[in-house]
Amino acid sequence: MNTPIDVGTESITLRINDQDVSCRKGETVLQVARENGIDIPTLCYMEGLSIWGGCRLCMVEIAGSPKLQAACATVCTEGMNISTHSPRLENYRRMIVELLFAERNHVCSVCVSNGHCELQAMAVKLGIDHVRFPYRFPHLEVDNSHDRMRMDHNRCILCSRCVRVCAEIEGAHTKDIKGRGVLAAIIHDLDQNWGESETCTSCGKCVNICPTGALTHRGTAVGEMTKKTTFLPYLTLMREDQP
């Protein structure tokens, strides 16, 4: 995994979307764009964690470079001329988000993260109203073994933010990835149930960093939000006792 790039003191200038901006040497295109109010979409990027470069939503065009570059992993150089929102890029971004929806079972209406999900928000932002690709509808497990947290693989987009925060910030490295291609999945320790993990410190950072409803606190699912009705029969009793 990459370590965050050292930022130096020397400053340089470059152009983003025909706007002249300056930055310190060593800063990435994504950092500079955001500092200047240009919103490049990302899902796997998280400030403070190592660069992953997996969601490919932050791809930008750099004049003179035949290939698109991921803004999160590209360090600014003097005189760079960057375009972040061309129709072509927007089209690619839409396709990528559509692919994420087609990959696993993202059903917003019954998801605990409905309304506060980064994937959902991204789809709205990019104007996605339908998915062109065949849905995969995989059969995936929900790991309900941890007493405070839950992993629902149906909602996971494999951004690896949980893996990185667990390894790099908490220092536990409980989580990692197994498998290849669409069969890749988040695992705990040696592919054990989360509740049986001996390294998990139950710190909950992974839940709070997860962009979707894949990692959640227990008790937040619709079925779990039942009311405590056991005291209701005593209501009349309580009244009768009163003089």
Partner: peptide, 18 residues
């Protein structure tokens, strides 16, 4: 390619599948 994709980036992981 689909079965050999490492699964890190979305275009390759899901794109090859589709």
């Amino acid at each position: 390619c689909k079965s050999e994709s490492c699964g890190k980036c979305v275009p390759c992981r899901v794109g090859t599948y589709e």
